[in-house]
């Protein structure tokens, strides 16, 4: 990361470049969230994440009471390619100044 040019932030994706090899948070369409180490990305926000935790939030309607039941399902995946068109936001790790 040494050189000044490499660490300069001029456009949104530069922030993602600075998150390479760091754990990031990704919010996806259809109520999915990922946390994982960023290993690769491109201009479409296609990504490869490592050591990923996925959280899926689903809402079901109970057969008898017709009440909404909110469920979260978690799973871990060692290495995952994520297609960029499903990405809503990417949050880099918090940095202490």
């Amino acid at each position: 990361m040494g050189s000044e040019e490499e660490s300069a932030v001029k456009e949104p994706l530069d922030l993602i470049r600075l998150s390479l090899d760091e754990r990031i948070y990704v919010k996806l369409r259809s109520d999915r969230e990922l946390r994982g180490k960023l290993h690769a990305y491109d201009q479409h926000l296609n990504m490869i994440l490592g050591d990923v935790e996925e959280i899926v939030t689903t809402v079901e309607i109970d057969d008898e009471t017709y009440e909404e039941i909110v469920r979260t399902t978690r799973r871990t995946i060692p290495f995952l390619f994520v297609r960029g068109d499903g990405v809503i936001l990417v949050s880099p790790p918090l940095r202490t100044a």
């Binding site: 309607i61 057969d63 009471t65 017709y66 009440e67 909404e68």
Partner: peptide, 9 residues
């Protein structure tokens, strides 16, 4: 039916 019952609830 499930949808409309939910709306009533």
């Amino acid at each position: 039916l499930k949808g409309s019952m939910r709306k009533r609830m």
